[in-house]
Amino acid sequence: MYTFEEIIGHKGVIENLQQTIKHNKVSHSYILDGISGIGKKTIALTFAKTLQCLNKGIAPCNECSSCRAFDSGNHPDVFFISTEKKSLGVDEIRDNIQKDIETKPYKYSYKIYIVDKADKMTIQAQNALLKTIEEPPSYGIIMLVSTNYKQFLPTIISRCSLIKLNPLKPGEIKDYFKTGPIDHNMIDLYIAFSGGSIGVIKKMMESEHFLEIRENVIRWVNEINSGDLIKLFEIQKEMENYKEEIDFVLDLMYAWYRDILLIKQIGNNPYILNKDKINLLLNTGMDLSYNKLGRSLDAIEDAKKQLRQNANFQLALEIMLLHIKENAHERNRSSF
């Protein structure tokens, strides 16, 4: 059941949408933009449900024939358009929107089209949609859900009401998972890598891959400290298996050293991300100086910077690992 009360965060956005309904200033076209998993589709669907509600309020009544049809997934005048392909083509836009919108609503006030991953539309598809957006019928409403609205043509953007959804706040995410099946010792770690997205956290919870990478990172840190140069090159080779996810791997490594530094400075504290590994963090921290921890954090940041600049992948990781391994107080800086 789609209701505004169930939506996590985005109170300002919801209030603005409700005010447009109240004052009869609903636009014919919208872009709802933001990172994946923060509620864009839920807001679009709830807005659509409210607009079609026969009670004509600023929230769906959940009882009228329109609300019941919507909740059943069989509303005759609300259409959800999505694709699993790499792009959304012109034929899909022409068949599902451009031609269909010429027919008046079957029963309710509007014909509403919600296009998921709309920023995947080809230029040809956007041009086809533009013709409809420029001269929409009075009953037509199009909602484009995207993660990067800058992929749209400027003419599309200028004719749509742009709604930017910000990442959720940590407190909002914690409230959402308060009663859910989640390891609450892990929630801060999930939040740190979620970008403020509940959807991303759900994927991490369901993914053994996330836990696998973290366990490898923890092992690598211990092996860097205790191993020799041969071990460093072995670690570098293992890290190459995660080339497509290297930013995430390095972020996890950074978080681990950060937690050790925090523990050394103020002991066990609520700002620790890897709460479920607190004993291991305490033991690891005993062997690492502040100087070495600082060098390690800097080395990881340097590696990320070099990789963003398309530096040699293998060399960037080797230099990072060597700098982390260094025991000297002075840090030799290398460049490509």
Rank of each mutant, 00 (worst) to 15 (best):
N166M: 14
K169C: 05
K203C: 06
L168V: 00
G180T: 15
G171T: 14
M205G: 06
A192V: 07
S194W: 02
F193E: 12
G171V: 10
S161E: 12
G199M: 04
M186N: 09
T179G: 11
E172H: 04
L189F: 11
E172N: 05
I163F: 05
S194I: 02
P167N: 06
K178I: 13
K202E: 15
S197C: 11
K169N: 12
G199W: 02
G171Y: 10
K174Q: 13
P167L: 03
S161Q: 15
I173E: 03
I201A: 00
K174W: 07
G171Q: 14
N185M: 07
I201H: 02
N166A: 15
K174A: 12
G180C: 09
D183G: 08
H184R: 09
K178G: 08
L168T: 00
K164G: 06
S161F: 10
D175C: 08
I187F: 04
I182W: 03
I191N: 01
D183A: 07
G196V: 02
I191F: 04
L162P: 04
G171K: 12
L162M: 10
K178P: 07
N185Q: 13
M204I: 08
P170D: 02
P181W: 08
H184A: 08
F193K: 10
G171C: 08
G196L: 03
I187W: 00
F177E: 06
P170Q: 06
D175A: 12
M186I: 09
D183H: 10
K169W: 03
K169Y: 11
M204N: 06
L189Q: 13
L168S: 01
S194D: 01
K202R: 13
S194R: 00
K174T: 14
N166C: 08
T179E: 15
K164Q: 14
V200I: 14
P170T: 06
K164P: 03
F177T: 04
I191R: 00
M205E: 14
L165S: 02
M204T: 06
M186S: 09
G195M: 05
S194Y: 00
V200T: 13
L165I: 05
L162Y: 10
S194M: 02
F193M: 13
M186Q: 13
Y190G: 03
K164M: 12
K174I: 15
K169F: 11
I173P: 01
T179M: 10
L168E: 00
I163G: 00
I201C: 01
L162I: 15
S161K: 13
L165D: 03
N185H: 11
D188L: 07
G180I: 11
L189H: 08
H184P: 05
I198G: 00
I198D: 01
N185E: 12
F177A: 05
